[in-house]
Design a protein around this nucleic acid. Structure first.
Lengths: 189, 189
DNA sequence: TGCTCATGATACATTAATGTATCAGATGAT
DNA sequence: ATCATCTGATACATTAATGTATCATGAGCA
């Protein structure tokens, strides 16, 4: 009945993104183990947080690379990335919002690097007219993080279908809430 | 040099929405006082959280009522509410996301009531075609909370202009990131 | 059957945060 | 000048969370 580290980390991430004030006992309960088991696997609370941060970075890198691989345009790539990030939205949130994460210079540097790469992609999407030029890149990234995490949270709470979460996030960010307009050229969807 | 309770509460809300793990010493420092002064004004940490919740409820009620008062349509009213909620986005976030808030049945009931009222407004906006009918209400509310809080946070971090925050939030939610399309009827904007 | 490994239970020490009390000093009002 | 009020400084008790150690039990494997 040994617990896989990966399962423990996933459960820990889930618990902490839902409630950053959760104690190690709370986190352990969410993972189906006792607090002492967490200490055996990860050491201190700080050690656990750092490992969660590194794992989150890797997950986000993987999700972005897989999503953007063969997109037809930068805008399509960005939209695919948004949808791909929803299942790891808790990692995105963890990296951006949990203050303890920023204390580690290595983690902070890699988060900044990810944000630069996303920002470059936003620039390209603007150039091809997929994103309005007057929307600040910082806002685009902040809105993406917020909506991606909200979609994952809503799915986990059962408020939307898990299968719909990515699509709703992408649609909300690129089209907004309004009904889809009929396209000027070609058939309507 | 007595501190106004309102100022203390605003600073506390700011600090706790930015970092829910903040200690009372952290919160006091953000408010420009010492921890013991917080105890004198509010009693325990739980007492402070409860007062923050009640104040947040009042702020959100006031913002929604002021914004929706004379809108031309339900969709315009909802958009006005979104823009009006940005300056109190930390209260919205506090009420929705900080788990300690939910433990108080009175607070939980009033939050649920606010959500119902917003949901009714969303229904009306759908009926007049301002929001796509196939977007779940739960998602509309979740996305509004996420984007409103992201806009306030981005403004406070200096990533977007404070004056732009409400408009960017409203625009992102209703129009998405894309450039504004030319309208089919009437002059383009 | 016996051994290894992992976890739970339990206990305890340490650290951190919270809550309370008292005294000194500053400010504002009279 | 005096008094009232509020806050900071300081101290201390309490509570909660964390970190570490030991023993018992169960599962899996040879």
């Amino acid at each position: 009945m040994s617990s896989e580290r990966g399962e423990l980390l996933d459960a820990a991430l889930r618990a902490l993104s839902a409630d950053p004030t959760a104690t190690l006992s709370d986190v352990a309960a969410a993972a189906g183990v006792r607090r002492v088991t967490l200490h055996r696997h990860f050491g201190s609370r700080d050690d656990l947080l750092r490992e969660l941060a590194l794992r989150s970075l890797a997950s986000m890198d993987a999700a972005c690379e897989a999503a953007a691989g063969n997109a037809a345009s930068y805008t399509a790539a960005l939209r695919a990335i948004v949808e791909a990030l929803v299942p790891v939205g808790d990692r995105f949130h963890f990296l951006w919002k949990l203050s303890a994460v920023w204390e580690d210079p290595q983690v902070a540097a890699r988060v900044a690097e990810q944000n630069r790469e996303l920002s470059v992609l936003v620039d390209h999407a603007k150039q091809e007219g997929g994103i309005a030029a007057d929307v600040p890149n910082a806002w685009v990234l902040a809105a993406v993080e917020a909506v991606v995490f909200a979609a994952l949270s809503a799915a986990r709470e059962g408020n939307i279908a898990v299968n719909d979460a990515g699509r709703l996030a992408g649609r909300t960010l690129f089209d907004g809430f309004r009904p889809a307009p009929k396209r000027r050229r070609g058939k309507s969807h």
